[in-house]
Write a protein that binds this DNA or RNA. Structure first.
Lengths: 143, 143
DNA sequence: ATGTTCATATTCACCTATAAGCACTTTGTT
DNA sequence: AACAAAGTGCTTATAGGTGAATATGAACAT
């Protein structure tokens, strides 16, 4: 189970440390791709395989399906963690996530998310995320 | 599995580097043809065989189906990657894709797509691709 | 407090993939 | 035969990716 929030920084070549606590669950090789709300998603190979299976069933003739598949597959790349615990974030993904130096990595159960630190702070600001609203949704889900 | 996004440029003779990460999966010889949404499609020999099979099942009696088959088969050409990792894009296909110099190659699972860089940027603009639509599709697929 | 260990940050050096230029070959045209 | 156009192959330069070494700093044990 991928959980927690970790602050780290990209090196000059765009590499990032995978927090030690996530390393085992995410695996030595994993996949990152464009996510929602301006972050990047990272999946373990197992989780990604599930996802790919679903994408394969979508019809080529449907424009909406093409868009969806293009978004995730063209944005995806396999990463490998090096001996020092780092992995490279491809330049197009760094650009998509507006990442320069300080980033936040969070565990979200089945995946990790990589955020530009500023975006993460903005996303978590009171205007955007309120504990009350979250509590309300919890009730809806019967938690 | 063909994934990722790569920016490269055509040389003066219309040749293009096949990104190192796609080279193994696409094979030394592969097929490119006219694609949808203004790009070119590229298939490995295996995937092309699959695709041809599907085209064969379409009813010749249906004008739409005839058009569809003609579109893909008439545009198709076999390409070979040279020692330096490049392949030639036939001039009619370059013309179809409005390609001059800067192009983007993406992996989309079973095929690659070759886009004029400008068209790709336009395709990915907010007006065209909405996060809401993607999120909705994700929910539908149970991701 | 001091020393030890582990995780992360930083720097540098090397190597590979790609870009770009040029020359040669082939093909088709006049 | 001479030429132009298109295709092929080689060479060199460079940016970006990769790996190693070292520095920093926090956590923990003595």
């Amino acid at each position: 189970m991928l959980i927690g929030e970790y602050e780290h920084s990209l090196d000059a070549k765009g590499r990032l440390i995978m927090p030690a606590k996530l390393r085992e669950d995410i695996g030595e090789k994993f996949i990152i791709t464009k996510g929602l709300d301006g972050c990047l998603f990272g999946f373990s190979q197992n989780e990604w395989a599930n996802f790919e299976e679903k994408l394969k069933t979508l019809p080529l003739t449907n424009k909406n399906a093409r868009d969806f598949v293009r978004f995730f597959l063209s944005g995806a790349i396999e990463c490998e963690i090096d001996k020092q615990g780092r992995f490279l974030i491809a330049s197009n993904l760094r650009e998509y996530g507006a990442m320069e130096k300080e980033v936040v990595i969070i565990g979200v159960g089945t995946r990790i998310e990589i955020w530009n630190k500023e975006s993460w702070k903005a996303y978590n600001s009171d205007e955007n995320i309120s504990a009350d609203a979250i509590a309300e949704n919890m009730t809806m889900l019967g938690i």
